[in-house]
Amino acid sequence: MRVVVRTVSELCVTVGTVIVLFVVYVLFWTGVRADTVMDDQIDQLQEQWAQSAMRPSPGASGASRASGAPQASGAPQAPATPPGPAPYTADKPFAIMYIPRLGFTWNKPVLEGTATGTLKKGLGHYANTARLGQKGNFSVAGHRRTYGDPFKDFPRLRRGDAVVLTDGTSWFTYRIDKGPYKTVPSDIEVIDPVPRKSGYTGEGRYLTLTTCDPEWGHSHRLIVWAHLDSTQPVEAGKPKALRR
């Protein structure tokens, strides 16, 4: 009898400890992990962009050499200009997002796709929506809580707030028009090219951000809509919205 009682109580204490550890994991450890991973993603992007920024000069010299000695090199004939931008690769970062309202140092990588694993590494771009800065609706989802709490302060976003993105060649400044708008999880029309309920009537270059609501729940979604306000090449420096 004594042994049974002791074993049961020991098991209870063990389960309690595991639950406490799990809470620590969800509240704290996923954030630590995500911060490291997101910084890695941003480093990776910046490295990639630095390399592609260097490429034009060797590419140009290579082209002139090729014209000097046409069939000399056995290298395959690479087209001088890439045929349009490369499609986004699933689960790979392609842009960095800045939202001054969420903090002056707030910046997160944007990855392609909204799979669970992708969203652990940054914000996720809905795969079937428009490309960054293009006509249509560039839609991005992010965690409200856990994994670095990227969209923790989502409800503080207001009309007129800037959402700035860069893909390494240009800065895109979007201005929020409406939000946060609360909806249900099945309301996929919020990421349509002309989102329903957004107040937009015609085609345009829009941005939609989605996250969950309530903070720790999943019964609703919070939505913010923005339109493309301005673009500028990276050589022109940071856009006004990011300057202090």
Binding site: V26, A141, G142, H143, T146, I191, G217, H218, I223
Partner: peptide, 27 residues
């Protein structure tokens, strides 16, 4: 035990909780 929990058990269990549902198309 803590290492196994943090590296294998919790990452498996965490998506079963609702904190991951941030999209509107339920992918």
């Amino acid at each position: 035990v803590v290492y196994v929990l943090f590296n294998y058990v919790f990452p498996w269990a965490e998506p079963l909780l609702p904190f991951n549902d941030v999209t509107v198309d339920n992918q």
